[in-house]
């Protein structure tokens, strides 16, 4: 029997007739009023328990939203233990409830200003969903219905302070290391042109020397006078370049230095003999 009654209640929840054992409200009105607006300046709308308001209400920064209603159990006004205006922010799912102050006869009111709202509500891009929850102890069916939408109009000059998000243990965005750019060469054509220009300096130099009368005519004379000294000295000059070439390609410094030393000693000793021969030629007026 009892369950039958409850079945009937569930079916009639949306009907206008409030049955004995079901919580609802009547004489409900909602108004948004500012301090500047007078008594008549407030916008006021009627709320019905069965259908939400179609257009969203706007709540400007300085104004306050006021809901007045009479909670009823069945058709008589009675104080419900729980009479909440619940605001729900659809993107974050955050909910905040504002209790009505209800008198013994069921008359209740609640006032909400932007100061009462958490910052998530103030920064929400979508309108908040407001619902009315009226319930109490006992077996009467509780009431919980969407009543209206509320869009928050924040003051552009005084934007709400958004605190930095609290620390949570979660995976963090990936970091991919940005490498410095590799060193680049200029276009190969330019390098080639300048290489050719540098290489062309050698024939130019040799040509200039030839014009000035440079020759190797005394080579036989010099080698006849002191063949060993000249051979070793000129050989050591070439060998030194060879050592440098090996250092550039395969050797390290510790392999190159003894070789430089050895070639240097040979060059020094043979060089002093060879240059003596050159001096003899000079003194003989052949240079």
């Amino acid at each position: 029997m009892k369950s039958l009654v409850r079945c009937a209640l569930g079916a009639l929840l949306y009907s206008t007739v409030a049955l004995a054992a079901s919580w609802s409200f009547e004489d409900a009105s909602i108004s948004v009023s500012g301090k500047a607006a007078g008594v008549g300046g407030a916008s006021k709308e009627k709320l019905s328990p069965n259908s939400p308001l179609t257009s969203p209400l706007a709540l400007p920064a300085a104004d306050s939203l006021k809901v007045i209603l009479t909670t009823t159990e069945g058709s008589t006004g009675k104080r419900a233990h729980q009479a909440f205006l619940t605001l729900h922010e659809p993107t974050t799912g955050l909910e905040e409830s504002f209790p009505f102050s209800v008198k013994e006869n069921g008359k209740g009111k609640v006032e909400v200003t932007q100061k009462d709202l958490p910052f998530q509500f103030l920064t929400s891009t979508q309108p908040l969903k407001a619902s009315l929850v009226i319930a109490s102890f006992g077996s009467s069916t509780p009431y919980n219905q969407h009543a209206f939408d509320l869009s928050i109009e924040t003051d552009a000059a005084a934007a709400p302070a958004v605190p930095s998000p609290p620390e949570r243990y979660t995976s963090q965005p990936e970091i991919r290391h940005m490498f410095k750019a590799d060193p680049r060469s200029p276009p190969a054509v330019i390098s080639l042109v300048f290489t050719l220009a540098v290489l062309a300096a050698l024939p130019a130099l040799l040509g200039a020397w030839l014009l000035l009368g440079a020759n190797l005519d005394h080579i036989g004379k010099a080698f006849n006078a002191s063949p060993v000294a000249h051979g070793l000295f000129f050989g050591s000059i070439i060998a030194m370049e060879g050592v440098f070439f090996l250092y550039y390609t395969v050797w390290n410094l510790f392999q190159a230095l003894p070789a430089v030393l050895a070639v240097g000693v040979v060059g020094y000793v043979s060089g002093s003999r060879a240059l003596t021969e050159v001096q003899d030629r000079r003194l003989a007026g052949e240079r």
Binding site: S185, P186, A188, S191, L192, F194, T195, A197, V198, L199, A201, L202, L205, L206, W209, A214, N215, L216, D217, H218, I219, A222, H230, F233, F234, I237, I238, E241, F244, A274, V278, E286, R287
Partner: peptide, 28 residues
């Protein structure tokens, strides 16, 4: 490739130096 002018310069210097020494020693 950007180093070719410098490498070329070194070779020109090496060859030029050897020829200079020869000319200095053996020129009439």
């Amino acid at each position: 490739s950007g180093a070719y002018p410098w490498i070329g310069g070194i070779w020109v210097t090496v060859i030029g130096w050897v020829i200079f020494v020869a000319v200095w020693l053996y020129s009439k």
